[in-house]
Measured scan of single mutants.
Amino acid sequence: MATGGRRGAAAAPLLVAVAALLLGAAGHLYPGEVCPGMDIRNNLTRLHELENCSVIEGHLQILLMFKTRPEDFRDLSFPKLIMITDYLLLFRVYGLESLKDLFPNLTVIRGSRLFFNYALVIFEMVHLKELGLYNLMNITRGSVRIEKNNELCYLATIDWSRILDSVEDNYIVLNKDDNEECGDICPGTAKGKTNCPATVINGQFVERCWTHSHCQKVCPTICKSHGCTAEGLCCHSECLGNCSQPDDPTKCVACRNFYLDGRCVETCPPPYYHFQDWRCVNFSFCQDLHHKCKNSRRQGCHQYVIHNNKCIPECPSGYTMNSSNLLCTPCLGPCPKVCHLLEGEKTIDSVTSAQELRGCTVINGSLIINIRGGNNLAAELEANLGLIEEISGYLKIRRSYALVSLSFFRKLRLIRGETLEIGNYSFYALDNQNLRQLWDWSKHNLTITQGKLFFHYNPKLCLSEIHKMEEVSGTKGRQERNDIALKTNGDQASCENELLKFSYIRTSFDKI
């Protein structure tokens, strides 16, 4: 039985969820670079991206490699990797027998973001014989899940209580170790020597080791999670996991709180800001991140802002960003909400898709409305799209047979046209069989910064309504002859009103 693990408890099935942008060198404390989270699957090609990484700022997932063999891993080693800020997950990587050479110096898994409450997941690794993470000293947050690894031993010899604050939620089941077939031998045991430290858990006094050649490092209890030197002297209180010299914040392997210019500090002093819960960055760093993602459509890219001495992905609820200094300031009234469309555009074809934009005031991208039916549609669209004030790209209304009016965009005031449909149009209306009105132009103002209007096959939309939009939106004169079809717009509506004058002759039985 794995020490510190839980057996036999019912657990939810383990679901495996399925960018080499360097964020800056980590400095003297770390020998390499800070790398983003990685999802490495199918083959070993991307694994080489770990070569210079000291910190993975995010998670590391290595999974679904069915053609790899043990010899493929023999020359692979990433000794610079010290810390993973989120979680480490391995799933069905064939041929991998140990992690001792792959990650010989991995010391800390912070667990800032977890995989279903777990910071370390080893699942269905069919050839893994031992973990071998002999320098792993601290899992700051989260638990361990090690399950269905039929060859995995050296679990009962690990004292997880020396690595985690609590072992109650560890789930370590259905491994070879369960069948008591392992016969784990710690260093020196074969020669009758006791080389590794022994600890007591559940009444068992057991030597602690990761492999037959690597003991588990056990520091004096007084050192807590700070770690200790090879001689057993406690590291500085700002260290986490390990250090090369005692009581020196510049000799830590990793930091308990924050890293700044080669030393570990309790908090980031001005003019620095907390970033990702582990390091200090200056304003320029946060500003660069903001600008890199301002026009990016890459998933996970955030326009970072500053709030409460932190550089964070977005302002919290009730705050909006001051564009001059990136500071989050309290909103006066309802907060603006910028919604970034991942692929640059979004099609609204149902109430469900409209709900995804609920509360958005600025759309960074283009909207395509293609709704053919739905219950209580006008009210639903207004509830979900009615706060949109600005669209950076274009607005396209296409084959939306259920629409009679666009009044559900009740606050839309600006279409920038930074991206144009077919390279020309910022407003595009095609084949809307029941569209009769755009907006009530006596109450609604709309500016279209650039781009043209396109109207074709809107049989109940009168040309007068379209011409009014040209005047109000500032697009009059931009359109070419064929942009607004004269014969297919309003051709099934009563669009022309003329005053009919009647004269009559009164007659009676005795007068003409």
Rank of each mutant, 00 (worst) to 15 (best):
R297M: 07
N105F: 13
L90A: 11
L60Y: 00
I56L: 13
E151S: 05
S225I: 12
G300M: 12
S112P: 00
Y171C: 02
V218T: 11
P187F: 15
S237M: 08
E181R: 03
N308I: 03
Y87A: 02
G333S: 15
K292C: 06
G188T: 05
I185Q: 03
F285Y: 03
Q303I: 04
R74D: 04
H59K: 15
L114Q: 10
G203W: 02
I185G: 09
Y319A: 13
D177L: 08
N170E: 04
K80C: 05
H59N: 09
L81F: 01
S77G: 07
L260H: 15
H290W: 14
V281W: 01
A190P: 08
N195Q: 15
N138E: 01
G111S: 02
H48D: 15
L60T: 02
S296I: 09
I306F: 14
T320F: 07
G262F: 13
A198P: 08
I306H: 06
N43K: 09
H274R: 03
N202W: 08
P31T: 14
F205V: 04
I122D: 00
S98L: 01
D165G: 07
N170Y: 12
C286I: 05
C153Q: 01
H48C: 12
T140R: 06
T250M: 07
F78A: 12
F91I: 01
C182A: 05
C293Q: 02
R145K: 08
N52L: 07
L63V: 08
G132N: 14
G262V: 03
D248C: 06
D165V: 05
N135K: 11
P316A: 05
C301D: 06
L155E: 04
K193F: 14
Q276N: 05
C196F: 03
N42T: 08
F115K: 04
G232W: 13
M137V: 11
W160V: 00
S54E: 06
A190E: 07
L96N: 00
V34T: 07
W160E: 00
P270E: 10
A156G: 14
E266W: 15
G232Q: 07
G333V: 04
L120C: 04
N135L: 03
H212G: 09
I222T: 06
N309A: 10
A198F: 12
G183A: 11
A119R: 00
A156I: 13
N135Q: 13
R208E: 12
T85M: 09
M38G: 10
D247F: 07
K310C: 06
K310R: 11
W160G: 01
S324P: 13
N309D: 14
E57P: 00
Q204D: 15
Q216P: 01
F123A: 01
C223S: 01
S284I: 03
C268E: 00
P197M: 12
N308E: 08
E207L: 09
I201V: 07
T194A: 13
L64R: 01
H302N: 14
M321L: 02
L47M: 06
C243W: 01
T320W: 08
L131N: 02
I185T: 04
E130T: 09
C228M: 01
D72Q: 15
A198L: 08
T157W: 02
P70R: 13
D178M: 10
Q245W: 02
L106G: 00
I306V: 14
G203T: 13
N52A: 13
E207H: 14
L90T: 13
N295E: 07
R74Y: 14
L47E: 14
Q276T: 11
L128G: 01
E238D: 12
H212R: 10
T68S: 06
D75P: 06
N170V: 12
P36A: 15
H28R: 04
L174S: 06
K224A: 13
N105E: 10
N43Y: 11
D247L: 11
S213R: 14
H302L: 06
P187H: 08
N175D: 02
N149E: 01
F115V: 05
L99R: 00
E231N: 10
F91H: 01
G203M: 13
A230K: 15
N202I: 03
Y94G: 02
L131K: 00
V173R: 13
L102R: 01
T140E: 04
D86N: 12
E97H: 04
S284M: 09
P271E: 03
C264G: 00
P330M: 13
L240D: 03
C215S: 02
V305T: 10
N117D: 02
F205A: 02
T250L: 10
K217S: 09
N257E: 06
P269M: 07
T199P: 03
D177G: 13
N150A: 10
V34E: 10
P269V: 08
M38S: 03
M137Q: 05
L102P: 01
N322T: 07
C35Y: 00
Q276Y: 10
E168R: 06
T157Y: 02
L120S: 01
N257I: 01
P79E: 12
P246L: 07
K224L: 13
K193Q: 15
P104K: 02
L102S: 01
P316Y: 08
N202T: 04
I163V: 06
F275R: 02
I56D: 00
R69H: 10
K251G: 06
K100R: 11
L63A: 10
V253L: 15
G262W: 02
V218Y: 06
Q204I: 07
E231P: 14
K80A: 12
G300H: 06
L174I: 12
D72L: 07
H307P: 01
N43E: 05
K224H: 03
R256Y: 12
K224D: 15
C53E: 00
G132T: 01
C315N: 06
T68P: 09
S237Y: 12
Q216N: 00
H226C: 15
T85I: 05
T140F: 06
I62Q: 00
N138A: 14
N150C: 10
R279S: 13
L50W: 11
C153V: 01
I306L: 07
T199F: 13
F116N: 03
E124R: 02
P316M: 10
I146D: 00
T211Y: 01
I172E: 02
L332R: 15
A198G: 02
E97Y: 10
T199L: 09
I84P: 00
D248T: 03
S213C: 03
L326F: 04
E57K: 04
A230M: 06
S213L: 12
F275A: 04
V173I: 00
S237D: 10
N52W: 08
L164F: 03
S225N: 13
P31S: 09
F116G: 02
Y30D: 06
N149R: 00
S213T: 14
C182M: 01
H274V: 14
E238P: 01
P31L: 13
G132R: 00
C209A: 02
T199H: 10
G241V: 06
G142F: 00
S213M: 14
